[in-house]
Simulated scan of single mutants.
Amino acid sequence: MENLTLEMSKNTNTLQEQQLKLIEGNFTKSEALKIINNVVNVKINFHKLQRLSKIEGNVNDKCTYDNSRISELIDDQADMKSFLRSLEVNGKNIKISSTINITVEE
């Protein structure tokens, strides 16, 4: 996974925008599966912790929350795994790129 890069670059137009090039490179099928799985798991865990922090200390909470984003991520993760596993790469690499754009909303 030597092609995995983490770099931040400032947008020259405004200081209210940032980009984080999270993933950029060519990966084996196995590496691609691990990367996608790990990135999505982090996001799923983030939503689970957010949900937990809302009820912490409230013994009367009925724990009824919108889990649609967690379910969506789990479904997307399964789709990506299925897609990547079905690929016949025959020694070829898989290119993955992911950039996070951060903008301050007015």
Score class of each variant (00 low, 15 high):
E31I: 03
A78F: 04
F46Q: 09
T14K: 09
N41P: 03
G25C: 04
N45A: 13
L4Q: 09
C63D: 11
I36R: 03
M8H: 09
N67K: 06
S68K: 15
I35S: 00
E7H: 03
N60M: 13
N45V: 08
Q77K: 15
N26M: 06
D75C: 00
I70L: 03
G57F: 08
V39F: 08
N26S: 14
S68V: 11
F83Q: 07
S30Q: 11
D61A: 06
K10I: 09
L52V: 04
L33V: 08
A32V: 07
E72Y: 06
I23S: 05
L22Q: 06
N11F: 10
E17W: 04
G25A: 08
L20N: 10
R51G: 00
E72K: 11
F83L: 13
K21S: 12
H47L: 05
E24R: 04
I44S: 01
N26W: 09
S71Q: 12
L73N: 01
L15F: 10
T28H: 03
I44N: 02
F46T: 06
I74W: 00
V42S: 07
V39Y: 03
N45R: 14
E17N: 13
D66N: 15
Q50Y: 08
I23C: 05
N45I: 02
N67T: 13
K29S: 00
T28E: 02
F83N: 09
I55M: 07
E7W: 02
Q16I: 07
K34F: 06
E24D: 14
K48N: 10
D61C: 06
T12P: 05
S82T: 15
A78G: 04
K10M: 11
N38D: 14
N58I: 14
V40C: 06
K10V: 05
N41D: 15
R69Y: 12
E24N: 15
L52C: 06
L49T: 08
N26C: 10
S82C: 08
L22M: 14
E24C: 01
S53H: 06
E17S: 10
D61K: 07
S53D: 13
K43F: 02
K48D: 02
N13H: 09
Q19M: 13
N45L: 12
L33E: 05
N11A: 07
K34P: 00
I35E: 01
Q19E: 13
N45T: 09
D75W: 03
I70T: 01
M8K: 10
L20K: 05
I35M: 07
V40P: 02
V39S: 01
S30W: 01
F27V: 01
I23W: 06
S71I: 10
N58G: 04
V59P: 04
Y65F: 15
S30D: 12
V39T: 07
N45H: 07
T5Q: 09
A32I: 01
G25M: 03
G25Q: 11
E7Y: 04
Q16T: 11
V40F: 11
L20Y: 13
G25Y: 01
S82W: 02
K62L: 08
G25K: 04
D61N: 15
D75G: 03
K34W: 05
E7N: 05
K54G: 00
F27T: 00
T28I: 04
G57P: 00
F83Y: 15
D61Y: 09
H47Q: 07
Q50W: 03
F46G: 02
S53L: 08
K48E: 11
T5S: 07
T14C: 08
K29R: 14
D75F: 10
K54Y: 09
V59W: 10
V59S: 14
C63Q: 13
I44T: 02
I55V: 14
Y65M: 02
